[in-house]
Write a protein that binds this DNA or RNA. Structure first.
Length: 552
RNA sequence: GCGCCCGUAGCUCAGCUGGAUAGAGUACUUGGCUUCGAACCAAGGGGUCAGGAGUUCGAAUCUCUUCGGGCGCGCCA
């Protein structure tokens, strides 16, 4: 529809002037129904070069427009906007188009089946997932769904930092608990993790339990001095916990990659050798440095510490090289904004390998921190202090659907305040129920209609004329564009907001019109509209990973 | 001090590549169920889009600047 309009307008304008850059032409969907179904500013942008008043140009464009069967009327408004109003045939075809494509309505093939990897959550296996990880999980998973819907071959990946200093801290913490050292005790490891879950792991270990992670069984022997075993046991236990939480959050991953695997495969040594060979390193203070400033970083970074261990970012570079070698031309990393400084380093390290990896690769979506409020006070999230708002708690108390909606409905880069009491107390006022209610309400009407649903996608000849009807149809027709945009802009929150608007249009229509009327044509016409609405809501909710219940 | 993000209604937040009268939820005040699901709808009040300057037909949106908040700036990840 839009393409057709662009085509018509371009032809018209070309007959008026040779000097026309079609990129200046903006076709939009006006917010107000009174401004039509489509609108263009073209006359305004041409005013200067043609040296004529915009409204006069607008009239000329309309005069030169090829007759189209799609529009009921075309008018000039305001400073020189041209507004297009769809006729009934076009409105009906929008509905029929939705009913024809069903669960594929809104999808597109812009991805051309290219591979894309989305890495998200990637929490360290040092504690349960908290609300911040939940935000990452919700955003990352919705992005993945958006890309799938846009014709991409998506791989969801989770990266475990199971090597490095934080794992040593974890191990020491569990060992301390095995020795019955309380976190308040002065001999408890200074950088240790103090949460109660550490004690639970220690108890399991002391009771000689076994833990199975990714098919590998780790059997505790209860030996409180077996550091290596305690490490493996703790990491495996926590990974299982995290996987369980994610499963409860309706998030699944295709692949898991372990930081330790790059040590074992020698990939890290290779990266270091390459960087040394490319003469991008130097030694200072007994440490090995990488000249990341050559690639836009604000200072050089230590690769290898004076004690011989690598800093975290070398494994990160090796990991991303691995992603590149796996053939992902697009990689999106979803992570918390507190990690934003790694972006430059990872990209710099990759450039330093001189393997023709694009400068802006990989892409990043950063979500801002969440302030958690409880009992009117801010809860500081700190794994080390053991104060927590776990994702698991939220799912238990607020529900998976509501939690997902809440965490994905805001722009990733807005700092959001998650008031736990409010989310619990007002769970019935959560917008997600408003949307689901629309879906269930339509289901109830369709059930009582006594009509075969397959009859609804035949031409019934009904005239859509009320504001509520036109406004709802317009909203439904925007869905495919919106999906495309949300995907391009890596902004899944737009889907959430759209669904709320869409549900509002429906509820408004519901109170405005009766569907189950005697007059057959009216009944079929209206039912097909709400049937299409239900389909769009269902498709949208699926993109958010939220259920679309028929009853609630 | 330097870098990134943000500042929109009392509160929580939308506002698409600059467009027409800046929107929604919540809270507050009213009205609407003997008939398709009231977890709903309709109406009302509530704004210096943090302040200032610039760019242009046109700015919440782009640029600069001041102020305010968050995050990062480690041989932690």
């Amino acid at each position: 529809m839009k393409e057709k309009l662009i085509d018509l307008l371009t032809k018209s304008v070309n007959s008026l002037t040779d000097d026309f850059d079609s990129s200046q032409m903006l076709i939009e969907r006006p917010k107000l129904l009174a401004h039509g179904d489509f609108s263009t500013n073209i006359a305004l942008t041409l005013a200067k070069s043609l040296k004529k008043p915009p409204r006069e140009i607008a009239q000329l464009i309309i005069d030169h427009l090829d007759e189209s069967e799609v529009f009921e009327k075309i008018e000039i408004a305001g400073a020189g906007f041209i507004n297009f109003y769809l006729n009934n045939k076009a409105l009906t075809s929008i509905i029929q188009n939705i009913l024809k494509h069903q669960e594929r309505y809104g999808s597109n093939t812009s991805g051309q089946n290219e591979k894309i990897q989305i890495e998200f959550v990637s929490a360290n296996p040092t504690g349960p997932l908290h609300v911040g990880h939940g935000r990452g999980a919700a955003i990352g998973d919705c992005l993945a769904r958006l890309f799938e819907f846009s014709g991409w071959q998506v791989t969801r990946e989770f990266y475990y930092n199971d090597a490095g200093a934080q794992i040593d801290n974890l191990t020491k913490s569990v060992m301390a608990r095995c020795n019955h050292i309380d976190p308040s005790d002065s001999t408890f490891p200074e950088d240790g993790y103090r949460g109660d879950y550490i004690k639970e792991i220690a108890d399991l270990y002391l009771n000689k339990q076994k833990v199975v992670c990714e098919g590998i069984t780790i059997q505790s022997n209860g030996d409180i001095n077996d550091e290596e075993l305690i490490k493996k046991f703790s990491v495996a236990t926590l990974r299982n916990e995290q996987d369980k939480d994610l499963a409860a959050f309706n998030v699944k991953f295709d692949t898991y990659t372990l930081e330790s695997s790059f040590y074992e495969s020698g990939a890290i040594d290779q990266v270091v050798d390459t960087l040394i060979n490319n003469q991008l390193t130097y030694t200072k203070d007994d440490a090995l440095w990488l000249k990341t400033t050559k690639f836009g970083d604000d200072k050089d970074r230590v690769m290898k510490k004076s004690d011989g261990a690598y800093t975290y970012f070398i494994p990160d570079v090796a990991y991303h090289l691995n992603k590149w070698e796996r053939g992902f031309k697009r990689v999106i990393n979803e992570q918390g904004a507190d990690h934003h400084s790694t972006i430059n380093r990872v990209r710099a390290g990759l450039q330093g390998l001189q393997k023709n990896i694009p400068k802006g690769w990989p892409e990043y979506v950063l979500h801002q921190m969440i302030t958690v409020m409880k009992n009117g006070e801010e809860v500081k999230i700190s794994k080390r202090a053991g104060s927590y708002v776990t994702l698991n708690d939220l799912i238990d108390e607020v529900g998976c659907d509501a939690t997902r909606y809440f965490l994905v409905a805001r722009r990733p880069d807005s700092q959001l305040v998650f008031d736990v009491d409010l989310a619990k107390a007002q769970s019935n006022d959560n917008p997600v129920y408003y949307i689901q209610y629309a879906h269930a309400r339509i289901e109830a009407v369709l059930n009582q209609s006594g009509e075969q649903l397959t009859k609804l996608n035949q031409d019934h000849g009904y005239q859509y004329q009320t504001e509520a009807e036109k406004s709802l149809i317009k909203k439904l027709s925007e869905f495919p564009d919106l999906v495309y945009l949300a995907c391009m802009e890596l902004a899944p929150h737009q889907i959430a907001n759209y669904l709320k608007d869409c549900a509002a249009e429906f509820h408004s229509y519901y109170n405005d019109s009766k569907f189950l009327v005697d007059e057959k044509q009216t009944k079929l016409g209206r039912l097909s509209l709400i049937y299409a609405t239900q389909q769009v809501i269902k498709n949208g909710l699926r993109l958010l990973g939220i259920s679309a219940p028929n009853k609630m």
